[in-house]
Design a protein around this nucleic acid. Structure first.
Lengths: 232, 232
DNA sequence: CGTCATTTTGAAGACTGTCAACGCGCGTGG
DNA sequence: CCACGCGCGTTGACAGTCTTCAAAATGACG
C-alpha cells in the first residue's frame, strides 16, 4: 500500500534540491515541520481508504494536508472505538511504539504528508529541537486521550456531544459555524454512544436553541455560554 | 512538598559513589534504570498522600518501589476518573508535556524513586539508549490508555471488571491469586462504573465460580478460560 | 425522478445508577 | 474484654438513561 503510494506521489519530490534562498537560513531547514516539508511525501487517500492498519508496523508519521482522518480499534464482534479525528495540519501516527495500535482511515478524500519514523528518530538524535517537538506532539496526543477517558468514563450522552461540538468548534477556523467531516456513526463510535443517541442529543440541543443544524453535516453554535455549562 | 521529601530521604543517597566493581562496566551505569538508581531519590508517601497534583509542573518522573499509586482527574462536581494504577517497578509521571494532567496519589503506604525530568532530558540528548527507553515508557503508557478508551467506550460492566481482573492478574507475581491494593471505589472510578456495579459484577462471577473472594481485597481466579471469554 | 445511504424519530426494553439498608472487620475506649 | 463506632463492602428495590428494534424522513447521486 505504502509502496504504491510512494510510486504515485514520490516523483514530485525526487531530486528536490535546497534552493539558494533557503540555503542561507539554517532555521528554516531544521525542525520537524521543515523536515516534513523537505523529506515528506504527499500521499492521496480516497474516502474510507486505510492509511495504516491495526498492529501494522509504525513506519511513518503523517500530517494531514487536506481532508480528514480517523483512527480506530475494531473488536471481533463489530464494536468500534474511534480514538481521534485529525483535521488539516494535524499530525498523527506517532505511536512511539513499534506498531500502530489503532488503524487509520481517510474520512473524506484526503491528502497527507508522510515521513519515515526512522528519519525523524535519527534527526532527533542530532537536533534537540526535533526531539522536543516530537515529545510535544506525543504530549498533545496523550492529553487528548486523557480527556477522552474522562469523557468516556464519567459523562452523560449530552455532555459528550456538547464536548464534541466544542472540540470541533475550537479546531475549525470559524468557531460558530463549521462542517463535520464525519458521519453520525463516526461521532457515536468516538463518544462511546449509538447513532440514535447522538442524533437525539443534537435534536435536543437544536430544540433548546443552543445550536442550529442547517444540514446534517453543518453546525452553527447559537448559544456558546449555554454550551459551556453542559459540556463536561 | 517535594522539598520536604527531598530532605527526609535524599540523605540516603548523598555522597553515593560508584563502587569499583561498577566502574568498569559502562553499560551498568547507563540507561534510564541505571540513572534512576544513581540519581533518583527515595521518597515515602503515606496512604492517600499526593505525589503530585493536577496541572502541577511535571518536574519528576517516578518509579514505584513499594506500595502502589493511582493517577486521577477530578471534576468540579466530584466525579473522578482514574487513569491508571502503578504497582512496584512501574514508572509513572512521564507526561512529556509541561504539567501533569492527572494527579497522583499513594493508594497504600508507598515508596517511590524520583528523578528530575530535566536530568533525563539532558541524558537523552547524549545517550540514544535513554531516549529510546523514554519513548518506550511513553509508548506503553499510550497503549494502556488506548486500551482503556475501548474499555470505557465500548464494553459492559461485566467485561470491564473481567478485563480489570485479568490485567491485575497479569501484573502480579501469582496469576491465579493476588491482592487488590485499591478500594472498590478506586476500581469503579477506573472502570467508569459505580461501586455497587463493581461489587455486583464480582459477586456474579463468584456465583458462577469463575473467581473466589477470600476477602474483599483478595482474588483467586478459578476459571481462567471462562474469563477470557467474558473480557473485552 | 428513483434509489440508496444516512439521519431522525418513536416505542419498548436492558443495563447501570441511585438510594437505602444491612453486614463485616477493625480499632478505640469504656 | 467487650461494646461501640466507623469505614468499607454487599445486597435489594426502584428509577433513569441509553440501547435496541423498527419505521419514517431526508438528502445525495445517478
Amino acid at each position: 500500500m505504502l509502496a504504491y503510494a510512494q510510486q504515485v506521489s514520490n516523483s514530485a519530490y525526487v531530486g528536490r534540491r535546497v534552493k539558494p534562498s533557503e540555503k542561507g537560513d539554517a532555521s528554516a531547514e531544521r525542525g520537524f515541520e521543515a523536515s516534513l516539508k523537505l523529506m515528506g511525501m504527499k500521499l492521496p487517500y480516497a474516502r474510507n481508504a486505510e492509511v495504516y492498519g491495526q498492529d501494522e508496523p509504525a513506519e511513518y508519521v503523517y500530517k494531514v494536508l487536506k481532508g480528514s482522518v480517523r483512527t480506530h480499534k475494531l473488536l471481533d464482534d463489530g464494536r468500534r472505538q474511534i480514538g481521534a479525528f485529525y483535521l488539516p495540519n494535524d499530525i498523527f501516527g506517532l505511536e512511539s511504539g513499534a506498531s500502530h495500535r489503532f488503524a487509520a482511515e481517510a474520512i473524506a478524500d484526503t491528502e497527507v504528508l508522510a515521513i519515515k519514523h526512522s528519519t525523524l528518530a535519527s534527526l532527533a538524535q542530532t537536533d534537540a529541537a526535533v526531539a522536543r517537538e516530537l515529545w510535544q506532539i506525543a504530549a498533545r496526543e496523550l492529553d487528548h486521550v486523557h480527556d477522552q477517558m474522562v469523557l468516556l468514563g464519567r459523562s452523560s450522552a449530552q455532555e459528550r456531544v456538547a464536548s464534541f461540538l466544542i472540540e470541533m468548534a475550537n479546531r475549525s477556523a470559524n468557531r460558530t459555524e463549521f462542517d463535520l467531516p464525519m458521519s453520525r456513526q463516526d461521532i457515536a463510535d468516538y463518544l462511546g454512544l449509538t447513532i440514535e443517541t447522538v442524533s437525539r442529543a443534537l435534536s435536543c440541543m437544536e430544540r433548546k436553541a443552543f445550536i442550529e443544524l442547517p444540514s446534517a453535516r453543518k453546525v452553527r453554535i447559537k448559544n456558546r455560554a449555554a454550551f459551556r455549562g453542559m459540556r463536561l
